Simulated assay, not measured.
Amino acid sequence: MTYVPAPVRREQIVAAARRVMARDGVADASLRSVAAEAEVPLGTMQHAFRTKSQLLQAVVDDVIDEIAAVYGTSPHVDHGLPQAIQQNLTDFWSHLVEGHSQLQLMQYELTTHALRSAGHERLANWQYRRYGEGVARWCEDAASRSGEVCAIPFDQLARLIVAGIDGLILQHLCEPDELRSTHDLQVFIDLVITLTETGPAPAR
């Protein structure tokens, strides 16, 4: 077998795990099935990830990094918080929700699997904490760059954004309707922007 550096091998295994979980569901994804998908011996698989919990956390991290990459490429962070909310949530929906039902379903399954599996509850906490921290980070950055203040704390704003987007995605998964979902997303964005009541930061 051709030598593959450990970091590259881990990336290959995580990518394989995402395919297996999207196709078969999180509960049915085993280390053995992921090893087969990645075309590596089970021993190699277990050297990279000793437990399924470790693999699940790596998958969560990879998905969140993908989401962060979408937010990170937005040029609108320099145009104020309302514009950042508008563009980032629109970009997120078009890049990672429309046409990506398996990805979104896998994320919900990761959460419910962790909550239902004794000893794995920490993973669900980690997943949603990282979602919130990522959203709070770009919201605060956008406000700071434009000298704005927000009516509510950024961590609370982020939790509300994550909660609202979660609900819209679940409804879209249950009854796919691009036109309706896009309209509902825009209404939600308008509500969030109103909630922030941004204004210039007070002079020092």
Results as ranks from 00 to 15, higher is better:
V34H: 13
V135I: 14
D62M: 06
R129Q: 14
Y108K: 07
Q127E: 10
E37K: 01
A35Y: 08
A124D: 00
L105H: 10
A48H: 12
D91Y: 09
R50L: 08
P75Q: 07
A36E: 15
A36K: 11
R32F: 13
E121D: 00
G132H: 03
H79W: 09
L55A: 06
R32Q: 10
A136P: 04
F92T: 05
Q83I: 09
A136R: 04
V77S: 12
I85P: 07
D62R: 10
T73K: 12
R130E: 04
W138F: 15
Q57Y: 01
A68H: 11
I67W: 12
L55Y: 09
L55D: 13
M106K: 06
P41I: 03
W126R: 13
A58P: 11
Y71N: 03
Q102T: 14
W126V: 05
Q87F: 09
H79C: 06
V77C: 09
E39R: 15
G99F: 03
V70T: 13
Q57A: 08
Q104N: 15
A124F: 00
D61N: 14
L89S: 02
I67T: 11
L31N: 12
A48W: 06
D65A: 15
E133F: 04
H95Y: 09
L42H: 12
Q46R: 11
Q86T: 13
E98L: 12
A124R: 00
P75N: 07
Q83N: 11
A114N: 02
A114D: 00
A114S: 15
G134H: 10
E66F: 12
Q57T: 06
M45P: 07
D28M: 11
S94K: 15
V59I: 13
G119S: 02
R130M: 09
P75E: 14
Y131V: 00
A36C: 03
D61I: 09
T73Y: 08
Q54A: 15
W126L: 13
G72M: 10
K52L: 02
E66Q: 13
H100D: 15
I67Y: 13
V59G: 01
E133M: 08
H95G: 07
Y131E: 04
Q102F: 03
G119M: 00
G134V: 10
A136W: 02
D91T: 05
V63N: 13
A69L: 09
F49Q: 01
D28A: 15
V60K: 00
Q54K: 06
A35H: 07
T111Q: 08
A124C: 02
L89Y: 04
G43N: 10
A29I: 01
T90Y: 02
L115F: 01
G80A: 08
E109L: 04
S33T: 15
C139G: 11
V70K: 04
S33K: 05
V77P: 03
D62P: 03
Y131P: 02
Q104L: 05
I85R: 04
H113F: 14
I64K: 10
A29H: 00
A136F: 02
E39H: 11
G99A: 06
N88H: 14
P75W: 11
V34C: 10
I64W: 08
R122Y: 05
T112R: 06
V59W: 01
V60Q: 01
